[in-house]
Design a protein around this nucleic acid. Structure first.
Length: 117
DNA sequence: ATTTGCTCAGCTC
DNA sequence: GAGCTGAGCAAAT
C-alpha cells in the first residue's frame, strides 16, 4: 500500500495482508473449506504467510480459521485447542471427512469460486 | 505413497 | 547482519 501524498510508503507487510486474509477467510460459506494455497495465490503471497497470519488472528469469531485447511485435504494445525477441536467444528458445520484428519475433497472449494464465481 | 526442494515474513542469535 | 522457523505447496521419485 502506498501513501504517495505524504511520501510515506507503508510496506506491504503482514499487517496489510492480515486484513485481506481475514476478509477472505470470513467469506467462506458454511460447510465448505478452503486451502491456504488458494488464499495465498489470490493475495500473491506465500502459503506459509497465510498460516502465520491466521495463527495470529485476534478475532476468531469473525475469522473462522478452522475453515482453512491444507491443499491435500489434510487439516493443518490449529492453535486454539488443536486439530481435534478443529475437526469437530468442521464436522459440525457439515464438512465431510474422508479420514479422521482428512477432509473429503467435495467439501473443499477454491477461494476464487467465492470471490469470482 | 513418500521424499525433496522451495518460499518468505517474522523471530532469534 | 546472518540464520532458523513455520497453521504449506508442488514436483519429482
Amino acid at each position: 500500500m502506498y501513501d504517495a501524498g505524504k511520501g510515506v510508503i507503508r510496506k506491504a507487510k503482514a499487517d496489510d495482508y492480515r486484513e485481506a486474509v481475514y476478509m477472505l477467510t470470513s467469506i467462506i460459506p458454511l460447510g465448505k473449506t478452503t486451502t491456504y494455497g488458494s488464499i495465498a495465490r489470490i493475495l500473491g503471497i506465500s502459503p506459509r504467510l497465510v498460516g502465520r497470519l491466521l495463527a495470529e488472528n485476534d478475532n476468531p469469531i469473525k475469522v473462522p480459521c478452522h475453515r482453512v485447511i491444507k491443499s491435500n485435504g489434510d487439516i493443518g494445525e490449529y492453535t486454539p485447542g488443536g486439530k481435534d477441536v478443529k475437526k469437530k467444528l468442521l464436522a459440525l458445520e457439515g464438512v465431510i471427512f474422508s479420514d479422521h484428519y482428512k477432509v473429503s475433497r467435495e467439501s473443499i472449494i477454491d477461494i476464487k469460486e467465492i470471490v469470482d464465481p
